[in-house]
Design a protein around this nucleic acid. Sequence first.
DNA 1: CAAATTTCAGCTTAACTGACATCC
DNA 2: CGGATGTCAGTTTAGCTGAAATTT
Lengths: 140, 140
Amino acid sequence: MYVVKQLELALRSRLDDIVRSSGITTLQYTALTVLDRHGGRSLAQLARDSFVTPQSVAFLVSNLERQGLVRRDRNPDSRRELIVSLTPAGRELLTLYSGAVNELEQLMTASLSDEETETFRSLLDRCRFDVLQPETHPEQ
Amino acid sequence: MYVVKQLELALRSRLDDIVRSSGITTLQYTALTVLDRHGGRSLAQLARDSFVTPQSVAFLVSNLERQGLVRRDRNPDSRRELIVSLTPAGRELLTLYSGAVNELEQLMTASLSDEETETFRSLLDRCRFDVLQPETHPEQ
DNA sequence: CAAATTTCAGCTTAACTGACATCC
DNA sequence: CGGATGTCAGTTTAGCTGAAATTT
């Protein structure tokens, strides 16, 4: 667990260096990449994905909206839901920084063979799955 | 990178559940575990380890000191350095929660064989090392 | 009516920058 | 004197809780 946290801290620090010049924070940048992967998601879904309250996500998203990087649209099938999605400007910002971010990912796995990298990804994913399982989960 | 972050978020959330009843935050708890691993460290060393400013660490440490969980002592060899170390109460708090924290670590690796767990730890450590390397590090 | 989603208002933590004293 | 360490002061970000409106 300690090494997972240390790796995440180191990556975060490097990402800060990369994203600094973009005018948005690393947190906001990460939110954009999530929206890029997972099409349009509601505020509540985003909140669950990132283990924070809906209010926190709403604050984050409204800042991105003010900068024209995301849009919020009512889901016509369920009028209470707001679907958050990238605007062209948001997508453009992502492509602008994708090179440096990919370089960082390759730096991380620089000393790993292709096979080891695939193993690593698989192990990370299995661990994440096990930690996410709600068994013995007394909350809420 | 995304999966690393997701795993860290999930672990953090579980750790919050565990530590909640202790009266200290997860951040403070993590600081105590670091001091447990690495004997007495100065504020500046702690700050570099956790990628934050010395001021932030000082704030964290003085809260722990107020609760009697850590001590700050001048290094006699270098009077400007303050060595932060666990008090008996701090060590006791750690042992009180070590059972649940170890269970969480075993939950994380529940579906991994012993050999895979060792591989995972090694891969994490190699990635951390590569990301920490200061090459192409244009900062400061 | 109950549950889910979003929003409004206020609060707190934990980070930051800037300035400064002290020590090696 | 330069560089490192720690401290004081003020600010901001990003989370939180509580309460309420709306929809399903």
